[in-house]
Structure formats: C-alpha cells, structure tokens
Write a protein that binds this DNA or RNA. Structure first.
Lengths: 144, 144
DNA sequence: CTTGACCCTGTAGTCGACTACAGGGTTTAT
DNA sequence: ATAAACCCTGTAGTCGACTACAGGGTCAAG
C-alpha cells in the first residue's frame, strides 16, 4: 500500500511526469488519492495500468482505444466480444497499412533497380521520369 | 502559354487553392508571374509539377523529400546518384515500418484467435491478460 | 454600379501523443 | 531558515500536411 508521488511513479515506469498528467486528462489513469496540498498519490497498481497502456500502444492501439480496452478490463464480468472486435478492427487497419506500404515499396524498388545512380544523369533516371510522366488531359475540374 | 489563375489550376488538379499556396510556402512550386494586382499566374507546366508532387507523395515521400526530388529533376545534367540514394533510404524506411506492422499484426492475430469473444468474459480474454501480465519489478528508475 | 466570385496576406486550427513552460505552492534536507 | 527539489494548474509548442478563417483588394456580369 506504499503511496507513490507522481515523480516516483514516473521514474519507475520511465515516463515523464507530464505524460502521466496527460494520461490522466485523457482518462487513462487516475491517482488513488491526493494529499491535503493536492499532490497526486498512486498505489503500486498504477504501474500495472501504465504497463498495460504501453503494451497496448506497442500493439498499435491509440490512446482512445487503450482507454476503451482499460475500461473493458475493469469490468471482468463483461463479454470479451468487444475486445475481440477492437482487436480485429486493429488487425484490419494494420493490414491495410501494410498493403499500402508494400505497394509503395514494390513501385520504388522497381524504379530503384533501373536507376543508373552515379553512372547516369537525373534526365536518365527512371524514378524522376516516372514522376514526370505526361499528365492526363487538363480536365475542367468537377462540374460542382 | 495560357495563363492560369490559382483557382483554375486548383480545379484542374483537384487541389485546394490553400494547398497550392501552402506548397509555394514550402518551396515546391511558384507561379510563373503575377498580375499587377498581385494575382498568381501559372503556366500549364504547373500541372506537371503538381502531378510530380502527388505521385511522389503516393510513393511515400514527404514534402521536404519531394522538394529535393523536384530540385534534382530541375537539374537534368546532374548525377542520378542522389535520387537513387533518396529512393533507397525511402525503401529502407518503408521496410522498417512494414516490419513493425507485421510484428503488431502477428501478436494481435495470435491473441485474437485465442479470444473467446461473446463466449467468454473479459477476465478470460487472452488479449487483456497479455496486456495485464505481471510487470517487471519496481525498478528504482535511472540513477541519473 | 453594385453584387458576387475571385484573389491577396497572415494567422490559427486540426489530428495524436506528447513536451515544455510560466507562475505559482509544498516538502525535504541542511 | 532557506534553498533545492518537488508538486500544482493551465496554456502553448512540436511534427506533417493541410484547412480555415479574417479582413481586406480585384474583376466580370448584369
């Protein structure tokens, strides 16, 4: 039941004091109590909660999503369906981003292989040529 | 040699007028001239340049990088080495991001498969369990 | 000749996750 | 008793790529 001031907790979990207060504003964590002078006091379980936050972030969840996960975790009787749903949505999101990146990578790689580098000029560079490729006709814009 | 006002150009390339002015501030594009009253006038080749910008962005380049690519493209006599270097760096950057995302995805997928969903409670959810896993010892923080 | 659509500059707001003050009060160590 | 180290609130700044005003001037149509 040892009480921790925000500074001690911050050092223990290797976060800035400002970050902990920020998490509090975001609704992720709250001190168990306050001293008479208003100092935040945390219990040890705050470390657990902060670790939860960090791990969820590493898995790709935003702070808003972490807040949801935490509130679900705080109700152990509730169905796990929502957690599963959030996780699936996150996986789908990540897959989309991977596909986007794969597309960029393969386009870049194909061009990079063709590029003569120091052996040629920018005028002969297929990367720049691809970017400079003739534009489609003027287009009179959307007939809004 | 038809001159375009910023609004006409914006409609043709489907960008906002503000965006074009923003690109100008960022050093990506400049009007060929100005009217006496200060209106920007662009030539048709501005479309080409804006297309270059868009394509480079799609390939993952930041506006600062696009600016570099454009200035290289503006010097056709120069070696293509720098373009190749930028491209390789971008590919490496993308590969790193893909790996990060792949790691997240496989961690999430493994947990998601184990999650009972509506058939179980949050207390039985392996996703939340993983996030709540016992933290490493208190750690007295960095002995700064 | 006036209305409306356009243009100008300059500044501020958006998103996400912090990070950094400013201007105080409190606690701890000497 | 005083200085250092801590804590408080509240606000503003950072990054990137826009986007949105505010408060003007200009230009084309009726």
């Amino acid at each position: 039941m040892e009480n921790l001031t925000i500074g001690k907790l911050a050092r223990q979990v290797d976060l800035g004091v400002e970050t902990l207060r920020y998490y509090e504003r975001r609704g992720l964590i709250e001190p168990q109590s306050r001293t008479d002078s208003g100092y935040r006091l945390y219990k040890e379980d705050a470390r657990q909660r902060l670790q939860f936050i960090r791990r969820a972030q590493v898995l790709g969840f935003s702070l808003d999503e972490v807040a949801e996960l935490l509130s679900l975790s705080d109700r152990p009787e509730q169905s796990a369906a929502e957690v599963k749903r959030l996780t699936r949505a996150k996986i789908a999101d990540i897959e989309t981003r991977i596909l986007d990146l794969e597309r960029m990578k393969s386009a870049l790689s194909a061009l990079e292989e063709q590029c003569p580098g120091h052996a040629g000029t920018t005028a002969e560079c297929p990367i720049l040529s691809a970017l400079n490729q003739q534009a489609p006709e003027p287009e009179q814009g959307e007939p809004a």
